[in-house]
Amino acid sequence: MTHINLLYASTEGNTKSFVEKLKKVAIEQGDTLNARLIGDETEYANETEPFFALVPTYLTGGTGTGPEVTEIFTNALGEYIDFGNNARHLKGVVGSGNRNFNVQFNLTAIRYAKKFNVPMIAAYELRGSVFDAEIIYNKIKRNIGEQ
């Protein structure tokens, strides 16, 4: 039995919907998945166990990936990870977005992985499928022991 901790941001419900799919996969595999939504109202806490982050991509400004592109709506999760020693417990990042945005698809998760020096485990589009959830859950599970 595996226990996985997950922190996520969800503004339109897409990531929350995907987390529910991940929970079903965990139950099917006899595992536990503890997922917590991190938003602007979340009080900072010191994480003491390994966790993974799921972050959607919401950007403003520019047309590519340069410095004029700014993260919006997901900053609370990044700030939470930055708090205290929380980043030390981050084991990997899963991202999402809309493929219609081309080079900006999944950009927030790519930036998190680089900033916190952890693997970018996977990406899915919008709410993701059950198939995406199965693949990504197993990738998360494999990354628990690799850190």
Rank of each mutant, 00 (worst) to 15 (best):
G66L: 06
F131H: 12
E134C: 04
A123G: 15
R36N: 08
R99Y: 10
G64N: 03
T108L: 11
N100W: 12
V69E: 15
A45D: 03
S17I: 01
G13H: 02
F131A: 15
R142S: 04
N117S: 14
K141Q: 01
E68W: 02
T63H: 11
Y112F: 15
G84W: 03
N138F: 01
D31H: 12
K24E: 12
S17M: 04
A87Q: 07
T15Y: 03
N34D: 09
V19M: 07
A109V: 08
F116Y: 09
A133W: 00
K114W: 10
F51W: 09
P50M: 05
E28C: 08
V19K: 02
N75F: 07
V69R: 14
A87C: 02
K16T: 06
A122F: 01
N14S: 13
Y58A: 09
E79D: 14
I144D: 03
N14W: 07
V94P: 10
V103A: 14
N102K: 15
G13F: 02
N106D: 15
I135H: 01
D82R: 11
F101A: 09
F116I: 05
A123R: 09
V19I: 12
G64Q: 05
Y137I: 00
G95D: 07
L6E: 06
T65I: 14
F83K: 08
E49V: 10
I72P: 09
M120W: 11
T11L: 10
N46I: 04
N34V: 00
G39W: 07
I144S: 04
R36G: 03
S10Q: 02
I121R: 00
T48H: 01
T15M: 05
L54S: 04
V118Q: 07
N75R: 13
T15F: 02
T15R: 02
K91Q: 14
N85F: 02
H3T: 15
E125S: 13
Y124P: 10
G78T: 04
E43Q: 15
I72K: 15
N102V: 13
Q29D: 13
